[in-house]
Every structure is written in structure tokens, then in C-alpha cells.
Measured scan of single mutants.
Amino acid sequence: VTTYKLVINGKTLKGETTTKAVDAETAEKAFKQYANDNGVDGVWTYDDATKTFTVTEMV
């Protein structure tokens, strides 16, 4: 189990959260659900070296 981080660069919501998951795919599903629940829709990137997902909403 690995800890993954999500950085949110939203128009109205900004911040970070973490989740523990067995792999990046599982973490991504959890983060996308979290973003969807919070009304964040944007471009996703993932950095495997730092285990960090970033979602950026276009203005």
C-alpha cells in the first residue's frame, strides 16, 4: 500500500489531499471521484516519481 497525493488547482477549490491505495490506478479512481464530488473538472497529470496526481481546471 502506497500513499498518493492529489494537488487540486481548481477555479474555486485549491488544495491537497492524500489517499492510500494498492496502485496508482486505484488512487486515480478515488481522486477522480473526490474531484467529481467537489465539482472539479480539469486536466489530469501524474508524476510517478513523487506519486502525485494534479488536476488543473482551465479558466
Score class of each variant (00 low, 15 high):
residue 4 Y to W: 11
residue 2 T to D: 12
residue 44 W to I: 03
residue 25 E to I: 12
residue 2 T to C: 05
residue 12 T to F: 15
residue 42 G to P: 01
residue 21 A to I: 03
residue 30 A to F: 12
residue 14 K to Y: 07
residue 50 T to C: 04
residue 9 N to K: 06
residue 7 V to R: 08
residue 11 K to E: 15
residue 15 G to C: 07
residue 7 V to Y: 15
residue 53 F to I: 02
residue 49 A to L: 14
residue 30 A to E: 13
residue 52 T to W: 02
residue 53 F to A: 01
residue 32 K to R: 14
residue 11 K to D: 12
residue 9 N to I: 15
residue 19 T to V: 12
residue 31 F to Y: 02
residue 5 K to C: 04
residue 7 V to Q: 06
residue 27 A to P: 01
residue 15 G to M: 14
residue 12 T to M: 09
residue 13 L to S: 06
residue 4 Y to S: 00
residue 58 M to I: 13
residue 55 V to K: 01
residue 57 E to S: 03
residue 3 T to H: 06
residue 30 A to C: 06
residue 51 K to P: 00
residue 25 E to C: 05
residue 11 K to A: 13
residue 26 T to H: 13
residue 39 G to R: 10
residue 39 G to M: 13
residue 44 W to S: 01
residue 37 D to E: 14
residue 28 E to D: 07
residue 53 F to M: 02
residue 36 N to L: 09
residue 3 T to W: 07
residue 20 K to E: 15
residue 1 V to I: 08
residue 47 D to Y: 05
residue 13 L to P: 02
residue 42 G to C: 02
residue 9 N to F: 11
residue 33 Q to H: 12
residue 57 E to F: 04
residue 14 K to G: 14
residue 51 K to Q: 11
residue 21 A to S: 09
residue 14 K to Q: 13
residue 23 D to G: 04
residue 2 T to M: 14
residue 16 E to R: 03
residue 31 F to G: 00
residue 54 T to E: 08
residue 14 K to A: 11
residue 30 A to V: 10
residue 31 F to W: 02
residue 51 K to V: 05
residue 39 G to T: 06
residue 31 F to N: 00
residue 54 T to D: 03
residue 45 T to M: 15
residue 19 T to W: 07
residue 35 A to L: 07
residue 9 N to S: 13
residue 31 F to E: 00
residue 26 T to C: 05
residue 19 T to A: 08
residue 25 E to G: 11
residue 31 F to S: 01
residue 6 L to H: 00
residue 33 Q to L: 12
residue 43 V to K: 09
residue 25 E to W: 08
residue 11 K to W: 10
residue 59 V to L: 13
residue 48 D to R: 08
residue 8 I to F: 14
residue 5 K to F: 05
residue 59 V to S: 12
residue 20 K to G: 07
residue 57 E to K: 02
residue 41 D to Q: 06
residue 22 V to F: 12
residue 21 A to T: 06
residue 47 D to K: 04
residue 27 A to I: 01
residue 22 V to P: 15
residue 9 N to V: 07
residue 34 Y to W: 06
residue 54 T to Y: 05
residue 12 T to K: 03
residue 1 V to C: 05
residue 34 Y to H: 08
residue 20 K to L: 10
residue 15 G to Y: 14
residue 34 Y to F: 11
residue 14 K to L: 13
residue 5 K to I: 11
residue 21 A to P: 01
residue 53 F to K: 00
residue 29 K to H: 12
residue 17 T to Q: 14
residue 2 T to P: 15
residue 52 T to M: 06
residue 25 E to F: 06
residue 34 Y to T: 03
residue 17 T to D: 04
residue 47 D to T: 06
residue 23 D to M: 06
residue 1 V to P: 06
